[in-house]
């Protein structure tokens, strides 16, 4: 009888053993990232900014494109930020609610940054990994193409495009998508060159796995750490890029707006005693950038191969 109960206990233990979960390298990295205070704070701030951009519109008392004509020419004393008037962030030069416009601008700036980074991750990683993995002449042709594209001053091309084809969101995304993946493909290729000589890739070749499957299954997951770090640092770069274009007056078209456009308009009114027009968009711009940089730094520390 005793023996039987002992057996039952052993069986129980074996059953528990049956579902051992491993700690993947991703899980390790997540733990390291969450222990990094600055990075965690950056992530929280990013989430808050994203919530602001997504749901801030519901709290605005005015539509972003509603022009309050009664405020025209009287911005400096009647359009100040106040809770009574419903203009939490004041109004802009044309008498539009700055809160609603900042919400819209933050959303569009983040969208531009994320889309640019996403294009970079998908196109750049696959392009670079393919070039690096195949190697030889194909690699040469693919990477020299990247070199040529990189040597073109894209800011001018983009400005020309925006002037010729008209200013639109699509053109802006196209322009940003065109340049963002170039650096990424170089990084991905460099990493691929070291990964493809690892024995596990050779084992996959010896097993008979097809080259494209090897790239997707063995190469890309192993270079993703660096790609993720680089892309979080790329998002703010894209936001700055878009802001610059918008600052020149070529980016987002009215009535749409972005942080860069808002900062531009605010800066024009700097001497008229309406500093809030510059301060609020600039605050969101800086906070978003800093948050992205902290998150990027934290990810780099968390995914650093030297830590493994």
């Amino acid at each position: 009888m005793k023996l039987a109960s002992g057996d039952a206990k052993l069986l129980d233990e074996t059953a528990q053993l049956a579902s051992i979960r491993g700690r993947s390298l991703w899980a390790d990295a997540r733990g390291r990232f969450l222990r990094n205070r600055a990075a965690l704070l950056g992530l929280i701030v990013l989430v808050l900014v994203a919530i602001f951009a997504l749901f801030g519109g519901y709290f605005a008392k005015y539509e972003p494109d509603y022009v309050d004509f009664s405020l025209m020419g009287a911005n400096a004393y009647r359009g100040v930020p106040s809770f009574e008037s419903g203009h939490y962030f004041g109004v802009d030069f044309d008498g539009r609610d700055l809160f609603a416009r900042t919400v819209q601008g933050t959303g569009i700036s983040m969208l531009v940054g994320v889309v640019g980074a996403l294009v970079a991750v998908v196109v750049g990683t696959l392009y670079g990994a393919t070039a690096g993995y195949i190697g030889g002449r194909v690699d040469n042709i693919m990477m020299r193409t990247v070199d040529i594209l990189m040597s073109i001053p894209f800011m001018f091309v983009l400005i020309l495009m925006l002037v010729i084809f008209g200013r639109s969101m699509f053109m802006l995304f196209l322009g940003i998508g065109l340049i963002s993946w170039l650096d990424m493909s170089r990084i991905a290729r460099g990493q691929t060159l070291s990964i493809k000589n690892k024995e596990f890739v050779e084992a996959a070749v010896a097993t008979g796995v097809r080259p494209f499957t090897i790239i997707l299954r063995h190469v890309v997951p192993n270079l993703l750490g660096i790609v993720i770090v680089y892309s979080t640092l790329l998002v703010p770069q894209m936001i700055i890029f878009e802001s610059f274009i918008s600052y020149l007056g070529l980016g987002i078209q009215e009535p749409q707006t972005s942080l860069g456009a808002l900062i531009n308009q605010g800066a024009e009114q700097m001497n008229n005693g309406t500093l809030w027009m510059l301060a609020f968009p600039l605050f969101f711009f800086l906070v978003t950038l800093f948050a992205f940089f902290f998150v990027g730094d934290g990810l780099r520390d968390a995914l650093d191969p030297k830590d493994r």
């Binding site: 390298l25 596990f200 050779e202 084992a203 997951p221 192993n222």
Partner: peptide, 28 residues
């Protein structure tokens, strides 16, 4: 290729660090 298989010199380097052991063994 499935008839000729190979065991490698460096045991750890021959296994993809991002895959679970089950996926590695199942790959062929």
């Amino acid at each position: 290729r499935k008839d000729v298989q190979m065991v490698f010199q460096d045991p750890l380097a021959a296994l993809n660090p991002r895959m679970t052991v089950g996926d590695i063994v199942a790959e062929p």
